[in-house]
């Protein structure tokens, strides 16, 4: 049994919110740089060049990469041999978000009620996914998610007979509908299986996986490669203004499902695919 104080959790989440919004992880950054070399459209190349410059300015002047610094998505994998002391865990997480968005000069983009729409002015609450796992550490992933791309995401309840082809069509159709709205080049997270909400969480989780780590399942890895290839043939390109580099990467996560179902979730992210992980 190990004891972790909520102050430690708050402090780390504060720092992770700021870090995620100023510095892109190397996997995403490298795909933007290699995409610039591969892009055939002159305007597309110019846009990818702007994104490269943008990352440099963001890091140097501590200006967020994108003005939509997102809702804070938090994945908490809590070791079952950890005891948390210091107060309610959820309050500690939201306090970390509050401090991070205040001290990092990040945008406050959360409204308290989806219909009344009054800004909470501190970007809380975050969206928190808890999992209880073996061990005595806590793994925290912070993934600030912008809504230009989130708005273009979909859950589709396919039939088992639709099979792999149905999954491909669902993903491609979602990408085509997203087009320029989702700030391409995009990163695409796909969840297959589970039920209605499970596949959506899988898709979000897929966005936090390193783009250079393909699925360990051979048939899913093949599907990831084929889909990325197909997406980059749509012609949408950087900024949606035509070109080859429509997506930087695509990750799929799967889960067992019901004999009657084949749920698919497509979570679209822009090129500012932010995720920071720490283990306490």
């Amino acid at each position: 049994m190990r004891t972790i104080h909520t102050d430690v959790i708050t402090k780390n989440i504060r720092e992770m919110c700021i870090e995620a919004n100023l510095y892109l992880a190397d996997d995403v950054k490298n795909r933007i740089l290699s995409g610039k070399e591969k892009e055939e459209s002159a305007l597309g190349k110019q846009i990818l060049g702007q994104l490269e410059q943008n990352m440099e300015i963001a890091a140097q002047d501590e200006i967020p990469i994108c003005q939509d610094t997102g809702m804070a998505i938090v994945f908490m994998n809590i070791g079952q041999d950890v005891h948390i002391e210091g107060g309610p865990l959820e309050d500690a997480i939201n306090e970390g978000i509050r401090q991070g968005y205040r001290d990092g000069y990040l945008r406050k983009s959360v409204v308290a009620d989806p219909l009344l729409r009054e800004n909470t002015k501190d970007n809380t609450p975050g969206i928190i996914h808890y999992a209880i796992v073996p061990g005595e550490s806590i793994e925290i992933t912070i993934a600030p998610k912008g809504f230009g791309s989130e708005n273009m995401s979909r859950v589709i309840m396919l039939k088992p007979a639709d099979g792999e082809e149905g999954v491909k069509n669902a993903v491609l159709e979602t990408v085509r509908l997203a087009g320029p709205n989702a700030c391409p080049p995009m990163v695409i997270g796909v969840g297959i299986g589970g039920d209605f909400e499970k596949c959506a969480i899988l898709a979000k989780k897929a966005l936090t996986r390193n783009l250079d780590t393909p699925s360990p399942l051979p048939h899913i890895r093949k599907l990831e490669e084929e889909l990325l290839d197909e997406i980059n043939k749509t012609g949408i390109g950087p900024g949606g203004l035509g070109g080859r580099i429509t997506a930087l990467g695509l990750n799929i996560e799967t889960y067992p499902t019901h004999i009657a179902g084949l749920p698919v979730a497509v979570n679209i992210c822009c090129h500012v695919n932010r995720h920071v992980k720490r283990i306490l």
Partner: peptide
């Protein structure tokens, strides 16, 4: 007009 989405640091200059 479109400005480049996700280039907010650059555009701020």
């Amino acid at each position: 007009f479109a400005a480049v989405g996700g280039a907010g640091a650059l555009l701020s200059k």
